[in-house]
Amino acid sequence: MSKSRSNKVTAPSFTVPDNCAIYCKDVNFVYNPKTPFQKQALNNVSLTVNKGEFVAVVGHTGSGKTTFVQHLNALIRLQSGRMYVLGRDLGDKKLDLKALRGEVGMVFQYPEYQLFADTVLQDVSFGLKNFGVDKDKRVQLARDAIQLVGLDFDKVKDKSPFDMSGGEKRRVALAGVLAMNPSILVMDEPTAGLDPRGKSEILSLVAQLNRERNVTVVMVSHDMNEVYENADRVIVFADGAVAYDDTPRNLFRFETQIEEMNLEVPAMAQFANVLEANGITLPDNCKTVRQMYDAVTALRGKADV
């Protein structure tokens, strides 16, 4: 299989399995090629994400994770390798960008910096307007999205988004993406800069979308505790390549390797690892403090008998 897409030969036809939301094979990406600033950002990245999965993408700054997620709605065009998102070939020169971007919602870092409209309603319905949705339908979809993020539509619709608090602004920005009803939600550090309550509000909203609407979630995060508690699977990027791709519980058993990559081991994983080293097995679902407490309590119950 040719790695270069510069040749005009049509790639052999390839069908992605139906349940596959994202399929990447040998994806490479170089910034500023053939200049002194040339930098290989992605190095033979191969991975798949299934529909309905909640996947966390982690790695320290410069590991290539942002470059990777920006491929998912073709903000960065594929240089080499193969990539399919919801069955669309991202290497296809005639790729329908508009349709792809309607299906893959992208929430950037600090999305509230991108608010621009006079009112919340205008801001949230901007994407829909660009997609030619008529006005009544727009208002209805915007109302749904605003309510989904936990804001009172009638109270906020005519407010300026700039008069709102940081957490509210972020939710308005998120509503703008959700109004498009994306099948895949890609988020780059959605909780950065929020207070603990704001963080858990955003995360439970995302978890709810994933659970109830089967939205596939790809979340970049530096907070290993939130990754541990929320993701079905964690993909670790290091030097532009996929270093690990595993369930959170399995991944964070590799404490030394995780710390060598300058990442942190979540508190509940550290705790569980010590218990395991002492021959005490815990159920796999002990991710939150409460779950861990219940599991440990159950252990004592057994020991008492």
């Binding site: 508190a267 550290q270 705790f271 569980a272 010590v274 218990l275 002492n278 005490i280 440990v296 252990l299």
Partner: peptide
């Protein structure tokens, strides 16, 4: 420290 706490819990058990 989660590791210390884990050790203490092991001792308890």
């Amino acid at each position: 420290d989660a590791r210390t706490l884990g050790g203490e819990v092991c001792l308890n058990l």
